[in-house]
Computed example of a mutant assay.
Amino acid sequence: MKIEQFHSNFVQNVYKNSEERKHGYVEGKTVGKSSVEISTEAKALVKRIRESEDSHFSEKVENIRRSIQEGSYSVDPEKIAEKILEKIDEEKGRG
């Protein structure tokens, strides 16, 4: 039947297109290339993070990220205000 043949071709084309998209294939001309440059500051930051003596740093960040996603992360405004005031006092002492 022609309907079955049409259906079969349609399914094969849809499958082919989805597979091409998964692998980044796009039909047509290549217009240009993109490039990404990482600043020396970013590279230095990554190096500092990797060399960090605090081996639990990543674990702490992951715990915070998870609690934010779960909606259980709480912020203590008094603690934040206390730290801000401490920082202001430190800066006044320096100036």
Rank of each mutant, 00 (worst) to 15 (best):
N17L: 14
N63I: 06
I3C: 07
Q69L: 13
S35M: 12
V36N: 06
Y15Q: 14
E27R: 12
Q69K: 13
G28N: 05
K33L: 09
S74N: 13
V26Q: 09
G32W: 00
S35L: 09
P77H: 01
N13F: 08
R65H: 13
I3M: 07
R48S: 12
S35V: 09
E91Y: 04
S35R: 10
S58M: 13
R50E: 14
Y25D: 06
Y73C: 04
E4T: 10
K79A: 14
G24I: 02
K92M: 01
F10D: 06
S72A: 11
N17R: 13
T40G: 15
M1S: 13
V75W: 04
H23C: 07
E86M: 00
R48D: 09
G95Q: 03
T40A: 15
N17D: 15
R66P: 00
R66F: 03
E62C: 02
K79H: 04
I68C: 04
I80C: 02
R66H: 07
E62R: 09
A81Y: 03
R21C: 07
K83P: 01
M1R: 11
H7Y: 11
S58K: 09
V11H: 07
K43G: 09
F57C: 05
I88V: 09
S74V: 11
I80E: 03
S18P: 01
I88H: 02
E27D: 12
E19F: 07
S67Q: 14
G24K: 06
I68V: 15
V36T: 15
G28S: 03
A44Y: 08
V11R: 11
K2G: 08
E70F: 06
D89C: 00
R94T: 06
I3N: 12
E90D: 06
S39Q: 10
S39R: 09
N9H: 13
V14G: 00
I64H: 02
L85V: 05
N63V: 03
S55I: 02
N63K: 14
V75D: 03
E41D: 15
K22Q: 14
G71V: 02
H56E: 15
